[in-house]
Every structure is written in C-alpha cells, then in structure tokens.
C-alpha cells in the first residue's frame, strides 16, 4: 500500500499538497516518511508558517522535527541557517516574511532534522514552489490545509494526500468527512464557457448572463432577483457555497446544473452533496492520491489502529490508504 502511494504521487504533477483533516493530524510525521521514501531526489518542502519547532505554539505539546533529506530545498529563518552552517547551501534571500522575520531559501547538503518556515499566503507559497522548481527541484510537497484560503484550491496543485487522525472526531465522523472529500474529488470537469470566473453567471434562454455578484454568501436573495434565473440551464458560483445557501436556494438549484470554481468551495454535508452530485461540475478538479492515517490523537481521542485502517480501507478501495507506523 505504501509503495502504491509513493508510485501514485510520483506519477502525478510536480506539486503535491499534504493536507490535514484537522490540526495536529500528523502531517509532519507523514511528510517525514514521504520525503524519506520518495523515489526522486531533489525535493522541495514548503510549509504554512512554522513546522518542526520543538513545541506547538498553540497546543503546547511537543512536535516532531522535519527530517530533510540531502538535496532538498526548503525555506527557513536566518537563525536556523546559522545553526546548520556546515549542512546548508544558501540559495536566495526570499521576499517573504513569517512572524516579521525574513525567509531564506536553502538546500540541504546532507540530511538533517530541522525547523522549516514558509510564507503565510497561498499566493506566496505557489510563487515559492515555482522558484524552487526553477532551481532544479523535481517534486514539491506543500504542507497545506483545507480551509477556504488554502493553497490546495490552486489549479497548480497536482494532487492531494489527506492526513486523517481521530483529532477530527469519532471514527464514523472521520469516515463521513473522508467520504465527502472523495466525493468532491469525483466531481467532473466543467464543460461550459465561463468568461469571468470571479462573478456568478448563468445560462438562460440561450444567453449567458454575468452578474455583479462575486459571492453567494449573504447574496442569496439578490441571486433570486436576477433576470430569468429561475429558468437557468446552469449557474456558476466562484466562491464558497454553504449549507445555508443550499437551504435558501433549494428550489432554484433543484433542477439546473451547477458549476463551481473548486470542489473545496462546496461546504455542504454529505447528503446535500449527494443530492446535487450528478448535476455538478467544477472548473478545477482535485485528485486525491492517497489517505494517510494516524490513530494517535493529541486530544486523547485515540482509535484502535487496526480498526481505523480496516474501516477506511473498506470505504476507499480505489485509493491508497496508508499508516506510516503500520507493519
């Protein structure tokens, strides 16, 4: 299973996002295993904020160091460079800051356990990924998240690996959420001509109408007032679509086709998603290369590792499900 996951990631695009289903899901432990076993040399690791610090600044629990292999590119603070002067090559002074401190791009001349620090915004993370690829990296791993501003929403991200732990909740909740994500990844590519992907638009009476609305949040009533919207063949939503919008627009969206910019914009529960699934397409598809499990939970909600592995594997037979601490 582990080899299947490595092969799958190796065969996809050059940027993979490792996203946690919740905070403290075990991304660093999984990343350490991933970069240590990945078949390609010259990797790049990008994180959001700090990773590998001794103590979690929010939770106060101890955190694993990032294990960086030889020839791996990463960004970090100046003091980390000073502490590892014999093991690093300084590649560039970056135009990004974290916590008010300047970031530097370095390359590991030998393997080391260290702290890596990345820029805060998705835009900067993607710029950095491009820059690292220009400097010779063969594959980039971005330590991401699943929030609405996540780097995972960018079309430049080739694939995702979802890291899940019982910090998220009960086993049934965890399986349901993974199921929702997998369902989102199965949404088909949209085949409509969307001229402005920043505005809500719709097709009605053989005309495509671009509205002035850039988000449906709190604009549901405005949408219903748009000309001939009730006869829409399809409607495109550029940003988040929540359960509240779903409830308000239930009648309107019950028959027409729906187009979303990104699957992760669909913030609906499993049942709502299933209702619209067949009529929904997306501009930017996501691919889930694998699911990484971690039975340990910092909040004490541990799950039996055998049961966790077996149940999730039973749910997702077509996806590589791994637990790096499994033998």
């Amino acid at each position: 299973m582990k080899q299947r996951l490595l092969d799958k990631i190796n065969s996809t695009d050059k940027i993979t996002a490792v996203v946690g289903l919740s905070k403290n899901a075990g991304k660093t432990t999984f990343l350490n295993w991933l970069v240590g076993n990945f078949p390609k040399q010259k990797l790049g690791i990008i994180t959001t904020g700090r990773d590998g610090e001794n103590i979690d600044l929010v939770g106060g629990h101890s955190k694993p160091k990032v294990m960086v292999p030889t020839d791996c590119f990463f960004s970090t603070f100046a003091n980390v460079i000073s502490a590892n002067s014999a093991k690093l090559e300084v590649i560039a002074k970056l135009p990004y800051f974290a916590g008010g401190q300047r970031l530097w791009l370095v390359k590991a001349l030998e393997s080391l356990n260290t702290e890596i620090v990345g820029p805060a915004t998705a835009k900067e993370q993607l710029e950095l990924a491009e820059f690292i690829l220009e400097n010779g990296a063969k594959h980039i791993f971005i330590d991401g998240s699943l929030d609405r501003k996540s780097v995972a929403l960018s079309p430049k991200i080739g694939s995702l690996v979802v890291v899940a732990s019982p910090v998220f909740g009960k086993l049934s909740d965890l399986r349901k959420e993974l199921g929702r994500l997998v369902l989102l990844s199965n949404l088909k590519q949209a085949d409509y001509n969307i001229s402005d992907d920043t505005k809500i638009c719709y097709r009605t009476q053989n005309n495509t109408i671009v509205s002035n609305l850039s988000s449906i949040l709190n604009n549901e009533k405005e949408l219903l007032k748009l000309s001939n919207i009730s006869e829409a063949e399809w409607i495109y939503f550029p940003k988040a679509f929540t359960s509240r919008s779903y409830a308000t627009l239930k009648n309107l969206i019950s028959n027409c086709n729906l187009v979303f910019k990104h699957p992760l914009h669909l913030q609906l529960d499993f049942a709502q998603l299933e209702n619209i699934f067949a009529r929904t397409t997306v501009l930017n598809k996501i691919t889930i290369d694998g699911i990484a499990l971690n039975s340990y939970a910092v909040n004490g909600n541990h799950l039996d590792s055998d049961i966790l592995r077996a149940e999730v594997r039973k749910d997702f037979k077509d996806i590589a499900v791994v637990d790096v601490s499994e033998i």
Binding site: S295, Y296, D304, S325, E326, I327
Partner: peptide, 8 residues
C-alpha cells in the same frame, strides 16, 4: 519495517 510502529 518502520522505526516507529503503532499496534492495536
């Protein structure tokens, strides 16, 4: 084998 193993 991994250097850390979790067993039910």
């Amino acid at each position: 084998l991994e250097d850390r193993i979790v067993v039910s």
